[in-house]
Computed example of a mutant assay.
Amino acid sequence: MEISLEDVRHALIELGRLRFGEMGVEEAIREIVATTHSMFAVDGAGLMLTDTAHHLRSVAASDDRFAHLEELQVRHQEGPCIEAYDTKELIGATDLEQDGRWPLFSKAAVNREVRAVLASPLPYNQDAVGVVAVLSERSRPWSPANELALLAFTDLAALLIASIIQGEQQS
């Protein structure tokens, strides 16, 4: 399914609304995942952040299946989210059954009926502090519009998380 400019506009308005609300980081992260899931009309979405040792950890997922796949990536240190975080670039897989980049992750994903993934790093200065990812149960070519929308969305999500954390630190 192709994402429209109207979908992107609606999602960005939702995130903008969150920025001015009274909420903590955990609630904001859950809202980011829910908005990502609905905006991209995908079968799952998740958000991973780094811990104090700079290791990615799953912090929010649209369902248990996606949370499990995030944990597999952490355990095996391979997968689209790990690669997006390490390279600080958008990483996509259109068909994990045919993609040989992450053999352990891909096999587990296909076994859980996940075929396509798009992962975008959450930027902070010149670094990445996490990853937002979407998944599909069927093979799916990610269009340039999908890729651009996820990049824009993760940039705004990173700003939202940073502003909430900064607000909590000043309180």
Rank of each mutant, 00 (worst) to 15 (best):
residue 8 V to W: 07
residue 94 T to G: 13
residue 143 S to I: 04
residue 161 I to Y: 06
residue 101 R to F: 02
residue 19 R to Q: 11
residue 164 I to A: 10
residue 25 V to Q: 10
residue 164 I to T: 06
residue 121 P to G: 05
residue 82 I to D: 07
residue 121 P to C: 04
residue 149 A to T: 12
residue 65 R to V: 10
residue 36 T to R: 00
residue 71 E to L: 09
residue 9 R to W: 12
residue 5 L to Y: 15
residue 49 L to N: 06
residue 58 S to F: 04
residue 98 Q to G: 09
residue 117 V to W: 03
residue 136 S to C: 14
residue 134 V to F: 03
residue 76 H to D: 13
residue 114 V to T: 12
residue 54 H to C: 08
residue 43 D to R: 01
residue 42 V to S: 12
residue 86 D to N: 10
residue 47 L to R: 00
residue 96 L to W: 00
residue 26 E to C: 05
residue 64 D to S: 14
residue 152 A to Q: 08
residue 134 V to I: 13
residue 86 D to I: 04
residue 53 A to L: 10
residue 163 S to H: 08
residue 110 V to L: 00
residue 76 H to A: 12
residue 18 L to M: 13
residue 138 R to W: 10
residue 120 S to V: 07
residue 22 E to P: 03
residue 12 L to D: 13
residue 47 L to E: 08
residue 129 V to A: 06
residue 165 I to P: 05
residue 87 T to D: 08
residue 110 V to M: 03
residue 55 H to S: 10
residue 99 D to Y: 01
residue 63 D to K: 01
residue 84 A to V: 02
residue 69 L to S: 04
residue 167 G to D: 14
residue 15 L to F: 03
residue 85 Y to P: 02
residue 163 S to K: 04
residue 45 A to F: 03
residue 6 E to N: 14
residue 112 R to W: 11
residue 46 G to A: 09
residue 127 D to R: 13
residue 117 V to D: 09
residue 125 N to I: 12
residue 13 I to T: 12
residue 131 V to I: 06
residue 28 A to K: 01
residue 56 L to T: 06
residue 99 D to G: 00
residue 40 F to A: 10
residue 158 A to F: 05
residue 168 E to P: 05
residue 124 Y to H: 14
residue 24 G to V: 02
residue 166 Q to W: 15
residue 147 E to A: 11
residue 10 H to D: 13
residue 156 L to K: 06
residue 49 L to C: 06
residue 100 G to C: 10
residue 58 S to I: 09
residue 129 V to Q: 07
residue 13 I to S: 11
residue 63 D to A: 02
residue 145 A to T: 09
residue 120 S to K: 00
residue 88 K to L: 11
residue 121 P to D: 07
residue 39 M to D: 11
residue 119 A to T: 05
residue 155 D to H: 06
residue 116 A to T: 08
residue 113 E to H: 14
residue 121 P to I: 00
residue 160 L to Y: 05
residue 162 A to L: 11
residue 147 E to F: 01
residue 90 L to E: 06
residue 119 A to V: 03
residue 146 N to Q: 09
residue 132 V to L: 09
residue 156 L to M: 12
residue 13 I to V: 11
residue 30 R to I: 06
residue 11 A to F: 03
residue 7 D to F: 03
residue 24 G to M: 03
residue 144 P to C: 01
residue 165 I to R: 15
residue 102 W to A: 03
residue 10 H to Q: 14
residue 86 D to H: 08
residue 163 S to F: 05
residue 89 E to G: 07
residue 133 A to S: 12
residue 112 R to S: 15
residue 39 M to V: 04
residue 36 T to H: 02
residue 168 E to C: 07
